[in-house]
Write a protein that binds this DNA or RNA. Structure first.
Length: 279
DNA sequence: ATGGCTAGGTTTCCTAGA
């Protein structure tokens, strides 16, 4: 089973890129961020033609997230329960495992009660703009809300994947210029503390389970030929629950679509996962 | 150098991204 996450920076502009990428990389679930469109504008028909169904949580101009999948999504939840937010940043759903018997895909309660499903959370973490700003305070409050909710989600769904645009680097290895970015947005101790706190809840960074090329990044600024010079940061992550850790067989960042005409500034991150054993 | 692109809306400049 393959899962991927991609901040597309406007699905309106990037729809053809996403469809091309899915044709070449037929993942089971694709998490999209920064749709920048409302639900009524979501291109369901184009994805249906490619064999995918979609759960979307859109917003005009900013934010917006979606889960694109080959199998139906169950128990869809939008945003973080318990955290009041007027931005569309999170969408979650349970998916049938590819090897699950047909009867387990029959309905939502069987997935939940028999623990045969995979819970997937697609998240677009706040940018934060600048340490000390109102948006930074919002980012920290949002991270508090996410952690409180995840604590219980992990109890409900042991097989859980949290993927998306985190807008946080783990450490200096995720930054092309650690000295220049020290204490800057995405690289502050406070943000990294929050990211580590998610790990402490019982999640692991799929990327670091494997040997990766040096200077592996998922985002490059549009300016100053940053992609060509590989001046980027790794801020898009796939975290899997501890129960899934030994089932992850690969994880990579696909830089190919960043070479397109009019690319997103982010690249997709892809994880390969074996099905969890049946309880 | 507080700039350098890109996208969307309030559109010929503004906010926001990261």
């Amino acid at each position: 089973m393959k899962l991927a996450t991609w901040n597309v920076n406007s699905l309106t502009v990037r729809l053809a890129h996403v469809l091309d990428w899915l044709a070449a990389n037929p993942v089971d679930v694709l998490a999209l961020q920064e749709l920048k469109l409302t639900d009524d504008k979501f291109p369901h028909a184009a994805f249906a033609q490619a064999g995918y169904s979609c759960q979307c949580f859109g917003q005009k101009t900013y934010n917006g997230v979606a889960l694109i999948s080959r199998t139906p999504a169950w128990a869809v939840v939008k945003n973080i329960p318990g955290f009041d937010d007027d931005m569309a940043r999170v969408i979650s759903a349970t998916f049938t495992l590819s090897t699950a018997p047909a009867e387990y895909s029959a309905n939502e309660s069987s997935l939940r009660n028999l623990n045969k499903g995979l819970r997937v959370i697609c998240a677009y973490f706040p940018n934060g703009q600048e340490p000390g700003s109102d948006k930074f305070e919002y980012k920290l409050a949002w991270l508090d809300g996410l952690r409180a909710w995840l604590r219980t989600e992990l109890q409900t769904y042991p097989n859980l994947v949290l993927m998306g645009d985190y807008n946080i680097t783990f450490d200096d290895a995720d930054v092309w210029d650690p000295e220049g970015m020290r204490d800057q947005i995405h690289c502050t101790d406070e943000e990294r503390y929050h990211l580590q706190a998610l790990i402490t809840l019982g999640l692991v960074d799929a990327h670091r389970l494997f040997a990766q090329p040096p200077k592996s990044y998922s985002w490059w600024d549009y300016r100053d030929m940053a992609f060509r010079r590989n001046r980027g940061m790794r801020i898009d992550h796939i975290l899997v629950s501890n129960a899934l850790k030994t089932l992850v067989t690969a994880c990579h960042i696909d830089k190919t679509p960043r070479k397109n005409e009019r690319p997103s500034d982010h690249a997709p991150v892809v994880v390969d996962l074996q099905d969890p054993p049946r309880a």
